[in-house]
């Protein structure tokens, strides 16, 4: 028995990607501008990791009424609160930003005096827990998180540093393995991906937290992976076809790797979609970010990173010396 194998991409594809480069640059520029606009106008929905505060996820016996919970929070003196259902109607997520010690000490039923900002957040948590336990019999606290103002500030710095450090190290590695023209192209493509991902978070208002930083770094790694594969082939083709115009060589290389690019992105996306659909509410945001990242990373390797080489001007004369 012989099964016909599926061809996801025609065997001898010859799309003219480079001819599309100006269109692609325009699309990317629009994407960048849109992302930056969304970031500055709408802003990110920072989780408590980065803005500090209290997060409580509960499961109630009976379906919980969000309005009732909101008014309970008002009663105990917490006004800036976000109450949403999480996964099902018996699961509720309550988040409160950092509260000042004065505001906390003014809450009804709070006996503590002379507390500092860090202690205040713990009081907020225990007050909410006390009120909820009174209201709902058999309530289960599935998740409690309190991030003090000091720690959240440090996490912002650590997260930003991590992304920048990763970009820089990759720039160095590509520089070391290829020439600087590739390095610049690859890192520009990465910055493109990072900005587009931040834009994605601003538009969807998905929570931006520590896992998101992990997702961004993974996207960076994945996109770089894709770019390197294309670049590797470009370099090989440059050595092989010394006289062909750069545009044509780039097209050949992209087309040769296209089948692989689509297959790998395909398998990765398939696995990630499984994670988004079945992995539970906690993994969902993470999976969505990665799905977006894989799509944008694949796009940027083909339509941004490779065409950028026509602009950075790859040296083609020294190739013979390098061929060992």
């Amino acid at each position: 028995m012989k099964l016909a194998l599926v061809r996801f991409i025609p065997t001898e594809s010859s799309f003219d990607f480079i001819r599309l480069r100006w269109a692609a640059f325009a699309v990317s520029a629009a994407l960048m501008l849109g992302s930056l606009a969304a970031f500055f106008v709408v802003g990110l929905n920072f989780g408590i990791d980065f803005r500090g505060g209290t997060l409580i996820e509960v499961q109630t016996q009976e379906p919980a009424d969000l309005g009732t919970i909101r008014s309970t929070m008002e009663e105990i003196g917490i006004s800036a609160v976000n109450v949403q259902s999480f996964g099902s109607d018996t699961e509720v997520l309550i988040t409160v930003g950092t509260m000042s010690p004065e505001a906390v000490m003014a809450m009804p039923g709070v006996e503590e005096t002379g507390i500092d900002e860090e202690q205040a957040q713990q009081v907020v948590r225990s007050q909410i827990q006390a009120a909820l336990s009174d209201q709902f019999e058999g309530i289960e606290y599935r998740r409690l998180e309190v991030v003090g103002p000091q720690v959240s500030g440090e996490l912002v710095v650590a997260g930003t540093t991590a992304v920048i450090a990763a970009l820089f190290l990759m720039l160095l590695y590509i520089w070391f393995r290829f020439e600087w023209q590739y390095s610049v192209g690859a890192v520009l493509a990465l910055i493109h991906d990072v900005i587009a991902t931040i834009g994605f978070f601003a538009v969807t208002q998905l929570e931006f937290n520590l896992s998101t930083i992990a997702a961004i770094l993974t996207i960076v790694g994945y996109s770089m992976n894709d770019t390197v594969v294309v670049y590797d082939r470009i370099r090989e083709k440059f050595r092989k076809f010394k006289t062909l115009p750069t545009e044509e060589v780039l097209n050949k290389a992209i087309n040769k790797t296209l089948s692989r690019t689509v297959l790998t992105s395909g398998t990765t996306l398939v696995a990630l979609i499984a994670m988004a659909l079945i992995g539970g509410a906690a993994l969902q945001g993470f999976a969505l970010a990665l799905i977006w990242g894989v799509v944008i990373g694949t796009y940027s390797s083909v339509f941004v990173a490779a065409p950028l080489l026509t602009l950075t001007g790859v040296k083609r004369t020294s190739d013979e010396d390098e061929e060992a």
Binding site: T218, G221, V228
Partner: peptide
């Protein structure tokens, strides 16, 4: 092989940075 190596080294760089920045779940 060259492409596989380069591709994995770059992802490994991302993983190492994450590890060093390292807060709990991440």
């Amino acid at each position: 092989f060259a492409a596989i190596l380069d591709a994995n080294v770059t992802t490994f760089i991302a993983a190492s940075v994450l590890y060093m920045m390292g807060a709990g779940p991440v």
